[in-house]
């Protein structure tokens, strides 16, 4: 049961954040809502369109395809990064001189800017000059991510796994080292096997951080733009054109601000829904 307080002064401390959010989120969002019901040809001239753009986007095969690709991408990277991150965290030492080494190694990919990651992998995976591309081709596999959709998907996923698994590792590791030794000693006395220790001690204790990891990775991968844009430019064809890449193509490439506004809002409410579900799951068991 939550207790209520009569001290309302805290509102003034919240005020700067409210102003900041208003400027960097609320006003742009309002503008997008305004754009989504109008047509413009530039020069700040707008013509009323109603809900037509929403209808167009909802029935657009292009949007369905981009949304499908986006969901598939997010699903695949979550299915790889979360178990892999937990597995790596489990193998990391809990104490000793190797702890800082492991932590720094894990943190390295996270420090590299998105566009640099994209450029690195762009060259690394090129079939003629890239180490990865040449190695795969040397093994007798025909691999060229600039021409084969499957190879492009493989490269984009591998790049994301390389870039972001560390985040899951670090979060899972933080959850793991917070487990008191007494739990492990009790498990040892009971003769628990490694799997039982993982299932009944480590996993429940990591639940909170893993939910945060899934939420962060979901939101980040669902709005991924820079890395695939730099790596594949959404190609070959449209095979790696995810939602945000398609959105930018419509808004800035074609200057169709109306449909882009409608698409942004649909994109926004999907993200909001999933974030709400995760947030609710995360805080449901909190003591009130």
């Amino acid at each position: 049961m939550a207790t209520k307080t009569d001290n309302q002064k805290a509102w003034f401390f919240v005020l700067p954040v409210v102003v900041l959010v208003a400027f960097n989120a609320l006003i742009p969002l309002m503008t997008v809502v305004n754009y989504s019901v109008q047509e413009t040809f530039g020069n700040n001239l707008f013509f009323w369109e109603g809900v037509g753009w929403f209808e167009q986007v909802l029935h657009s095969e292009r949007f369905h395809a981009a949304l499908g690709r986006q969901l598939m991408f997010t699903g695949i990277i979550l299915a790889i990064e979360i178990p892999l991150g937990v597995a790596i965290a489990l193998t990391m030492p809990r104490q000793g001189p190797w702890v800082p080494v492991c932590l720094v190694l894990m943190a390295l990919p996270l420090l590299i800017p998105w566009n640099v990651v994209g450029s690195m992998w762009n060259i690394f995976a090129l079939p003629e000059i890239g180490l990865l591309g040449r190695a795969i081709n040397a093994m007798g596999i025909d691999y060229n991510y600039t021409q084969q959709p499957l190879a492009a998907w493989f490269t984009v996923i591998l790049m994301d796994v390389w870039h972001w698994t560390s985040l899951v590792v670090l979060l899972a590791y933080a959850g793991l080292i917070s487990i008191p030794d007494a739990y492990y000693q009790a498990a040892k006395i009971d003769g628990a096997k490694a799997w039982a220790v993982f299932r009944h001690i480590q996993l429940p204790k990591m639940k909170r951080v893993l939910t945060i990891a899934i939420l962060l990775r979901f939101i980040d991968s669902f709005m991924i733009y820079t890395e695939p844009f730099v790596l594949t430019g959404g190609g070959p064809g449209n095979s790696t054109t995810f939602l945000s890449i398609d959105l930018v193509k419509i808004a800035l490439g074609q200057f169709d601000l109306g449909p882009a506004g409608a698409m942004s809002l649909i994109y926004f409410v999907i993200t909001l829904l999933v974030s709400w579900v995760f947030y609710t799951l995360m805080t449901r068991d909190d003591p009130k």
Partner: peptide, 15 residues
């Protein structure tokens, strides 16, 4: 505020 391209229906929604 012309850049925000306000319309009456969207303003009503936010109000």
């Amino acid at each position: 505020l012309t850049w925000m391209a306000w319309t009456w229906p969207t303003a009503a929604l936010f109000v």
